[in-house]
Amino acid sequence: MPKKVVSIIVFPGSNCDRDLAIAIQKHLNVKTEYIWHNEAKIKHHEMIFIPGGFSFGDYLRAGILATKSPAIKEVINFSKKGVPIIGICNGFQILTECKLLEGSLLVNKNQLFICKDIFLKIENKKSIFSKNIKKDILKFPIAHGQGNYYASKDSLKKLEDNEQVIFRYCSNKGSVKNKNNPNGSLNNIAGITNKKKNILGMMPHPERAISDKSTADGNIFFEGLKELL
């Protein structure tokens, strides 16, 4: 049987597209196809990724300019049909800017870009993205200037009530406290889904944690996605 194909949308300024393709190929036994942002058709749509980086230089607001690309219109169409979509870092920012996900990612509380390893608590394993992750706490790098998750009180309550929060920043032992919050995110939120739970946005980078030399928890994350294909 020919291998399935996973699509990765590439914008001018994306810079995690290659790392993501490598991680996906390594774990999901699929091919990957880069979709240039100007393409109006996404041929392979069993699963779509939006990678990290600085699409359009992060100008105006991180992610906003990318939402006007033809490929994103197509992503929105497929999202309505229930196609699994994952946006990482800048991908998460794009997904909030095009309103596929609730809330917004503000400038980090300390106003600085932050790159370091953090611990993530898997808040619930009921989503298609998290149910097969064979660990409760993951160690991933973060690398962003705007990852400070914000949503209005009402939306936040709905997110929590509806169990859309998938990842929270925590300590190495899983305690979710303010001091484990690297960027000021409300409720230590690091990753959420939409209401229908077929779209995941997350700030940390699992695709950068697949080497044996550094942290390898990214492998566990990608292995957990196998069943979706």
């Binding site: 810079n15 995690c16 290659r18 790392d19 490598i22 600085l112 870009f113 932050i114 790159c115 370091k116 790098p141 690398a143 980078h205 695709e207 950068r208 697949i210 080497s211 030399k213 550094s214």
Partner: peptide, 14 residues
Amino acid sequence: IYEQYDRSVMGDTL
């Protein structure tokens, strides 16, 4: 200083 620098992009920093 160095936490302001992306050190992990490209996935090959050891």
